[in-house]
Amino acid sequence: MQYRLFCSLLSAGLAVAAAPALSHEFWIEPEKYQVESGEPVTARLRNGELFKGAEQPYLDHRIARFEVMQAGSAAPYAGRMGDMPAFTSGIAQDGLAVIIHQTRPQRLVYETWEDFQTFADHKGFGDIPARHRALGLPEAGFAEQYTRFAKALVAVGQGAGSDLPVGLETEIVALDNPYTGNPAQGLPVQVLYQGRPRPHAQIEIFAKAPDAGVTVTTLPAEAQGKAVIPVLPGHRYLLDAVVLRPAPVGQDYAWESLWADLTFAVPPR
C-alpha cells in the first residue's frame, strides 16, 4: 500500500513537471507565515497560476538545494521521499527564517511558436522574435530548460532579522522585514542575477487577500534591480522575476529560463 502511494505521488510530480508550464509559477507556501517560538514550521511546494497550484511532494532527485537560513547561517534540509508537505522542521531560534529551494533543471518542448511567444511576452521579453531569428532557431519543436529558485520568509517568535542574498543564480531579496516593517511604506526588494543587481527586471506581484482573492500586477525594477512593492496588512504575496537566455553553445535545447520567486505575508493590523 505504501509503495503504491509513493508511486502515485512520484507519477503526479513528474506529470506536472513534464507539462508545458509556460507561465506557471513554482513557490514555497508556508502553512503559517508567523509561528510561535518552538512551533514547527510547515511549508508546501506548489506549481500553478494566480497563486493557486498543485502541491508537489518531496522528491530528492528533483532538488538541487533545500535549506533554511537564519541570521546569515544556512542549514540543509532533508525530508523523506514523497513527503507532503515537503517541508516540516522545528526551528529552535527565534527570528526571520528564510526557506530556500532550488530545483534541478527540467525541460519542456514548444510545439508551436505561439506558446513560446505568449510566455515571453507575459514575462516581459518583447524582443524575443528578433533574438530567436538571429540565433537561427526553428519556430516549432524546440526545447527550453528551466530552473526554479524559490525563497519564503517566515517569522519565528517576533521574527526579527533580515533577508540576505543566498547565492542562488537569480533571486529576489527583501531589503526590509515584512513582519516588523511599516506596510504603508511598501516592501523594498532587489532582483539579483549571478550575484549582481539585475537592472529593469520585470517583477510580477501576486497578492492574496484574506478572502483568498488574488490580484496580479507587474512592476519594473530600476537600474539597480530595486523596486518597492506596495503591500497591505493581512495579505500574502508571491513575487516572480524570470531570466530568459539563449542556451549555451552545443546544448540540445534552445532557451534557458531561470525563475526567482519570493513568498511572504504582511501581518494584519
Results as ranks from 00 to 15, higher is better:
17 A>F: 03
154 V>R: 00
133 R>N: 10
12 A>S: 15
194 Q>M: 09
29 E>N: 06
248 P>T: 04
49 E>W: 06
235 H>D: 06
81 M>R: 13
107 R>A: 12
256 E>A: 09
181 G>T: 09
89 S>P: 08
25 E>S: 13
60 D>R: 11
142 F>N: 01
193 Y>S: 10
195 G>V: 02
64 A>H: 15
172 I>L: 05
103 T>A: 13
173 V>M: 05
22 L>K: 10
70 Q>L: 14
239 L>V: 04
255 W>K: 00
121 D>C: 05
218 T>N: 12
196 R>G: 14
7 C>E: 14
102 Q>K: 13
62 R>Q: 15
9 L>Y: 15
214 V>D: 08
174 A>L: 04
55 E>Q: 13
228 V>P: 01
23 S>R: 02
236 R>I: 04
188 P>Q: 08
258 L>F: 07
62 R>W: 15
207 A>G: 09
255 W>C: 00
202 Q>A: 05
101 H>R: 13
74 A>G: 03
63 I>T: 13
114 E>I: 09
163 D>H: 03
161 G>E: 05
91 I>T: 02
210 P>A: 09
20 P>R: 06
169 E>N: 02
142 F>T: 01
72 G>Q: 05
243 V>P: 01
28 I>H: 00
214 V>T: 12
247 A>C: 08
214 V>F: 03
68 V>H: 07
187 L>Y: 04
188 P>S: 12
5 L>I: 14
26 F>S: 10
196 R>C: 13
40 P>F: 04
84 M>T: 13
28 I>S: 03
206 F>P: 00
178 P>L: 06
47 N>C: 14
